[in-house]
Design a protein around this nucleic acid. Structure first.
Length: 429
RNA sequence: GGUGGGAUGGCUGAGUGGACGAAAGCGGCGGUCUUGAAAACCGUUGUGGCGCAAGUCACCGUGGGUUCGAAUCCUACUCCCACCGCCA
């Protein structure tokens, strides 16, 4: 969430940002409400100051055994007026907040202005696309022939775009999770977290999934009376992990904090029907290892670069060629100020697949979740910067592995770094 | 699922409707003393909003209510703790 004061003072920049993001928000209404709210507040507080003063006088008179019935009668009227005005102020504030929660983050200055993914900037490529002297099979064919993924039965027990990993397929999932967690904890200094896979409404709001993207979330435990207690299946570990420090003030010497977590991720993919539906590319539940950083504002952009390197190292270790692109304004997710995507090469489909989004949210999430730090002892708390990157999303890595390391006979080689996690197995099939 | 207890500042913990943004202790910060440190002593130490400012308002789990006035009374809810039942 953006600072209301900042919006008030930079209204033109906000309008331009919305245009660049192709998003709408009722700024005119916001400005009007803000002005009304402040007028109301100032006046109400003057009345309250008077009320406090007279209440003191009543107390003193009573102590002196003097009569105060007349004053009390007057105050009864004032009290009523204050009650009405504060109720108005609360209403205004609720509407202000509902608009504020729908305004996306300001893009960081290097973010290219663009209208489609074609305007993303390619930052780098790594590895050479391999060439083959036989016809490549798509990953779903390989997976079905090896009997390591069961698409049919996934659909039967849950629905379309749910899959079942089986045998060495399930083992491969487990191996990848463990490999990635080990890499980040032992090589990159992250602390492993195993968070809840469900999150409540304030938590989902803190990272920005709600209210704007609520229809993309799986919701369970709906309680009309207590919407705060609604539980959602997490769409990413970012949600519970970032919110670990909600409403806290962290000592500066604990920063930066690096956390990594494996979780399944649940996404309804509302509005994505018919898009990339074949195979493992877009499924409602998938495994992911996530990295989350909490830093000072000064350090956040250098931390962003090292975060990207940490995510890249996964693909490098697996020997999978990839490229890094920087999101343009229209591709940038709601809460992000700057975002790199890492896209792995899938040789059979001959396309790049997003396996990691590496984002700096600056203080956008911190303001929503109220995560602060104290720059030095005795100073005022300030909002922290939060960042995260997938490290990485598994199904698309599996796609790249199956397609890249396939042999003409349909078997698949296991990269060296994964072999220890596969019981020494060098080949699937 | 049942019964009981609880929620107050960074922590522990007081708080008869007006003295309370809140005692006391611990911790933190600054200082005195010391070659240095510890101890002792002195001082200081919550957050947010509006306002150019002076200032002012709000906040004792959350939301309602009673009252001229609520940390304190009423009410609903949430969370935590303990025990019983059930359970991987």
């Amino acid at each position: 969430m953006l600072d209301l004061k900042y919006i008030r003072e930079n209204i033109d920049a906000i309008r331009q940002m919305l245009k660049h993001r192709k998003t709408e928000a009722d700024l005119d209404r916001l400005i009007e409400l803000d002005s009304q709210w402040r007028d109301n507040l100032t006046h109400t507080q003057t009345l309250q100051a008077h009320q406090n003063e007279v209440s003191q006088q009543i107390a003193e008179r009573k102590k002196a055994k003097e009569d105060a019935t007349e004053t009390i009668a007057e105050m009864r009227k004032l009290s009523q007026e204050i009650k009405e005005r504060t109720a108005e102020a609360t209403e205004l504030r609720v509407e202000i907040d509902s608009i504020l929660l729908m305004i996306p983050n300001m893009p960081e200055e290097t973010t290219p202005v663009g209208t489609s993914e074609d305007d993303n900037t390619e930052i780098k490529t790594w590895g050479d696309k391999p060439s083959y002297d036989f016809e490549l099979k798509p990953h779903w064919e390989i997976a079905e022939q090896l009997d390591i993924v069961d698409f049919q039965r996934g659909a039967k027990v849950a629905g379309s775009n749910f899959v079942v990993f089986k045998g060495l397929g399930a083992r491969l999932e487990r191996a990848l999770i463990q490999f990635m967690l080990d890499l980040h904890t032992t090589e990159h200094g992250y602390t492993e977290i195993s968070p809840p896979f469900l999150a409540n409404r304030p938590t989902m709001t803190g990272t920005g999934q709600i209210p704007k993207m609520e229809s993309d979330m799986y919701r369970c435990d709906r309680d009309e009376e207590n919407p705060e207690t609604d539980l959602f299946l997490i769409p990413t570990a970012e949600v519970p992990v970032t919110n670990l420090f909600a409403d806290e003030i962290l000592p500066v010497d604990e920063l930066p904090i690096y956390y990594t977590a494996y979780t399944p991720c649940f996404r309804r993919e509302a509005g994505a029907y018919g898009k990339d539906t074949r195979g493992l590319q877009r499924i409602h539940q998938f495994d992911k290892v996530e990295m989350v950083k909490f830093t000072t504002p000064e350090a956040s952009y250098s931390e962003h670069e090292s975060l990207l390197e940490n995510a890249e190292s996964v693909l490098q270790a697996l020997g999978l060629p990839y490229r890094v692109v920087q999101h343009c304004t229209v591709e940038l997710s709601f809460a992000a100020a700057k975002c790199y995507d890492i896209e792995v090469w899938a040789p059979a489909g001959e396309k790049f697949l997003e396996v990691s989004s590496c984002s700096n949210f600056e203080d956008f999430q911190a303001r929503r979740a109220n995560i602060r730090y104290r720059p030095e002892a005795g100073s005022k708390p300030e909002f922290i910067h939060t960042l995260n990157a997938s490290g990485t999303a598994l199904p698309r890595v599996v796609i790249a592995l199956l397609e890249t390391y396939q042999n003409p006979d349909g078997t698949v080689r296991v990269p060296a770094v994964l072999q220890p996690y596969m019981g020494g197995l060098k080949q699937i099939g």
